[in-house]
């Protein structure tokens, strides 16, 4: 590998990114499989194609930096330090799950690793991130709060109120927009009167950075800059990562709204994983070793989850109040 010459990150680091992205990919595919097999309840949104955004951003963060995620959260959770076991066990509704079986796919929490929760309300996590960042600022802690959200969320009042307040109070927050070009089924052109989302941040005087969300190295570089800006007390940054959802909105989505062939074309041209593999020049042997390792982790998580402890029905009455 002659990567060190071309990039600021070492080949070793990028290889670890590749492994993490592949773990997310295989984890998500397993989730689809177990859902179709009838193992999993509820409503599942997988992040196939968006792995590089989660890994590139979260690998710039310290453990005590915090994130808020969205309904599509598995990639953020794994990238912010949650184990595959804890995540899969949650999807199975077990005591050992990251939310003890109280949350499910759209409510994944891992406070110890700075994960303040997936959020099933589009835009719902943003005001809380402003508040977390405000707390860091008031306590003079050098910590950063990061909100993940999609292009669809930029149409919510919460988005606009949060960016306005965050910028007004120069809190150490980074607003990461995973622009996957669809709000559920509605393409951007049908839900936004502008094409350039950075204009929304600029309206608040907020610094914006745009990045190719399928290039993990670029995401990492952009996030490093954004996080440093926020951590230094210069206020929030709007980080626009253009990405693609290589699957439906939810597991089972027939995607009738997609132009014919779009998904196939995106998988061929916009998949961040083969792209990084190619960049790193990972040969067949190394690749299959990586696949084997990742598959073992994913399989182990399914076993762990299946063997986990079931909740008692009346456990539903716990944890309502502190």
């Amino acid at each position: 590998m002659k990567l060190e010459e071309a990039t600021r990150l070492s080949g070793e680091t990028l290889l670890s990114f590749l492994e993490e992205m592949l773990l997310i990919r295989r984890f998500e595919e397993k989730v689809e499989e177990r859902f179709r097999a009838g193992d999993l309840s509820g409503f599942l949104h997988v992040a196939l194609g968006q792995e590089a955004v989660a890994v590139g951003v979260c690998r710039t963060l310290e453990t005590d930096d915090v994130i808020a995620s969205t309904h599509r959260a598995h990639h953020h959770c794994l990238a912010k330090g949650m184990t595959a076991n804890a995540l899969m066990a949650e999807l199975y509704g077990k005591v050992e799950g990251c939310s003890g079986g109280y949350g499910g796919s759209m409510h994944l929490y891992d406070l110890a690793n700075g994960n303040l929760g997936a959020n099933a309300v589009v835009g719902g996590g943003l005001p809380g991130i402003v508040g977390a960042a405000l707390a860091f600022k008031m306590r003079r802690q050098p910590r950063v709060a990061v909100a993940f959200f999609g292009d669809g969320a930029t149409n919510t009042g919460s988005f606009h109120e949060s960016l306005n307040l965050g910028q007004l109070w120069t809190v150490p927050a980074v607003f990461v927009c995973e622009n996957n070009h669809y709000a559920e089924s509605t393409p951007s052109r049908d839900h936004m009167p502008i094409a350039d989302l950075t204009r929304r941040a600029e309206a608040f005087g907020m610094r914006s950075i745009v990045v190719d969300g399928q290039d993990v190295e670029a995401v990492h570089a952009a996030a490093t800059e954004a996080v440093a800006h926020a951590r230094a007390g210069n206020g929030p940054v709007f980080l626009l990562a253009n990405t693609y959802r290589l699957t439906g909105h939810y597991v089972g989505d027939p995607q009738v709204y997609r132009p014919k062939g779009e998904q196939r074309d995106l998988r061929a041209t916009q998949d961040p994983i083969p792209r990084l593999r190619e960049l790193l020049g990972v040969d067949e042997d190394s690749w299959s070793a990586l696949e084997t390792k990742v598959a073992a982790t994913v399989e182990a998580s399914v076993e762990f989850a299946k063997n986990g402890t079931d909740r008692l029905p009346e456990d539903a009455l716990l944890n309502v109040y502190a």
Binding site: L116, L134, E161, S162, L165, W169
Partner: peptide, 28 residues
């Protein structure tokens, strides 16, 4: 003014910023 904070007219952000600060252990 750091502790008696005038806000914009943004009721979602006012409540939500309170939620976020409270989760960090403050008592807004």
């Amino acid at each position: 003014k750091e502790r008696v904070r005038n806000t914009p007219i943004s009721e979602a952000a006012i409540a939500g910023a309170g939620v976020g600060a409270a989760i960090q252990g403050m008592r807004p």
